[in-house]
Write a protein that binds this DNA or RNA. Sequence first.
DNA 1: TATTGTTATACTCTATAACTATA
DNA 2: TATAGTTATAGAGTATAACAATA
Lengths: 143, 143
Amino acid sequence: MTAVDVLDLLLAVSTLLTKDTSNFAAREGMTPARLHLLWELAAEGATQPHLLAGRLGVAARTVTGLVDHLVESGHVARAPHPEDRRSTLVILTPQGEAFAERLRQMRANLARQLCETMPDNRVGALREDLEVVLSRLQRLLDA
Amino acid sequence: MTAVDVLDLLLAVSTLLTKDTSNFAAREGMTPARLHLLWELAAEGATQPHLLAGRLGVAARTVTGLVDHLVESGHVARAPHPEDRRSTLVILTPQGEAFAERLRQMRANLARQLCETMPDNRVGALREDLEVVLSRLQRLLDA
DNA sequence: TATTGTTATACTCTATAACTATA
DNA sequence: TATAGTTATAGAGTATAACAATA
């Protein structure tokens, strides 16, 4: 039952990655959900709340609350949308950008440490296998 | 930066697995945290709340709340501990065992679907690579 | 009429601290 | 004194529904 073993391993890795992210967030005075929002915002640039909701897979109401907290902590700001007066743009402040950069560096360090004893061709094979697993998971969840 | 790609893929897989578990829980009238507790309980048999807390990585208080809900829904029961009168044993009811069995089958199906297009030796290699990643993650989180 | 974001409300998960009973 | 579990309290995330403003 090797396939079952693979799923068990993926679930165990998922648990530990979640815990690691949670620890980092706590050290930075942040929470996992707010960190996730900042991460997406850093990746796609200033954007609207309903688009963030789609990216994060949460309801619009949730984004309102997360952005409220992040505005208060100084990581993001709301700006009027230039073309649609119903909407707003969520933008990173310099403090939010600095946080995203620390997060990016932490992830790069973690990635290096995870793979540092594996030969390069093994890492490449792992990446290809995970791409297969990911695309299959995406298909299964859409159905 | 293949190592970074691997981490990104692991994070993406983690997100989808979490969502899949959450969907299954919702269909069954359950929540992810209660499902996780039932899963551990099915794996290790009747046990004490503080041991469950250690397994799940949550505070003792959290286990009290989860068990409260699961008692109300009929999935588990509390029994006096035969040797330590301070403590209790959390046990699966027949309904809880039936749920655990459905969960096990769902996971087996998912595992089969994830790997079904990969040759057997590739699945074995993926398992070995994930074992490396998992043990390294565990070491990093302990430090 | 449909969409965007918000307010209102409720539930779940979680942690910390204080408390009770037992070891 | 230390441990096991619980009660009490508080905060964070989430969803649904209702609402106002705009498209």
